[in-house]
């Protein structure tokens, strides 16, 4: 009897342990394969040259630049809008009020919408609606300029997708600003807005940066939202303005694995591209974690 019980106990431990091991194994497997397959192809030339010979040779420079520009424009729009929303939610509207509940519900819903739906929304709203409207206004001759996919529309679509991440982390940061500090400022005859600007936001800077980095690392990895809104199959040059199309790492990878003239031949390039994309997102995630850690430490001392 005793032995049977012991045996069962051991079996449970082994089984649960094995299940937990799946996650570890998956990471090791994925990372191992990618590093193994890609590390030899990552050379200076690979990082600084454009693809050549029908994208079977050369590098991924335009895709790297495109990805950076994409997330940069995305952040320039998404971080301020997200921060202002968080300020409104935490400072200007009663937590229990209908308005606050509606906004919070909308933010949560936005976070749950599949990326491809954002892509289609971007195509419909930014490219076809906003872009067409702008063309009507600015070029009466009827030439297409804004009403086609470009880096601006792709960035705005991504900004929308990553908005919840920014809002949530800024709101969390604002909540941790001590009431003492706000009262100190208000008691000096400083207005509420000035207090937010001079005390609350500077003391939430860690949260704002964390939100920005999380948004960037999320945005840099998404392909679906930019599929119809601005990413190009192949561009020999870099985008010169926000109305140009662009190459992007994730999309480039998708193209090479599904549309290439010679999938076998480009395999090392695919591995290397994946490795660059992963290193980029990891670097961003780690810096977000590091920043949050620093912030927490500072709070303890203050």
């Amino acid at each position: 009897m005793m032995r049977a019980k012991n045996l069962l106990g051991k079996a449970v431990v082994t089984f649960t342990g094995a299940c937990a091991f799946v996650a570890v194994a998956a990471v090791v497997w994925i990372m191992g394969t990618i590093v193994w397959g890609g590390h030899r192809s990552i050379t200076w030339a690979f990082l600084t040259q454009a693809p050549s010979n029908g994208m079977t040779e050369g590098g991924i420079f335009p895709a790297i630049v495109g990805t950076f520009m994409l997330v940069l424009i995305m952040s320039l729009v998404g971080v301020p809008v997200g921060t202002i929303t968080a300020v409104y939610l935490s400072e200007y509207v009663d937590r229990q009020s209908k308005v606050a509940q509606i906004i919070r519900f909308a933010v949560n819903t936005l976070a749950g919408i599949p990326a491809i739906v954002f892509g289609l929304f971007g195509l419909g709203f930014f490219v076809n609606f906003t872009g067409k409207g702008m063309d009507h206004l600015f070029s009466p001759t009827g030439t297409l300029h804004w009403a086609q996919p470009n880096i601006l529309w792709a960035s705005l679509t991504l900004a929308l997708l990553t908005l919840p991440v920014v809002i949530v982390s800024v709101e969390e940061a604002i909540k941790t600003v001590p009431r003492d500090l706000r009262e100190a400022s208000l008691a000096l005859g400083v207005t509420k807005w000035q207090t937010i600007w001079r005390v609350v936001l500077p003391n939430s800077m860690g949260g704002i940066l964390t939100g920005a980095i999380l948004a960037v690392s999320r945005g840099a990895g998404e392909v679906a939202p930019i599929l119809f809104t601005g990413a190009a199959y192949f561009l020999p040059h870099l985008p010169k303005s926000v109305s140009d199309q662009f190459m992007e790492l994730g999309y480039h990878l998708y193209i090479m694995t599904t549309q290439s003239t010679d999938v076998e031949k480009t395999l090392p390039i695919q591995y290397a591209t994946t490795l660059v994309l992963l290193m980029l997102t990891f670097a961003l995630n780690f810096s977000a974690i590091f920043m949050r850690y620093r912030l927490r430490k500072r709070r303890v001392f203050a």
């Binding site: 001590p178 003492d180 500090l181 009262e183 100190a184 400022s185 008691a187 000096l188 005390v199």
Partner: peptide, 10 residues
């Protein structure tokens, strides 16, 4: 003006 119980420098 006001001085608080817990000192609260910025």
């Amino acid at each position: 003006g006001m001085i608080f119980q817990k000192s609260n420098p910025f």
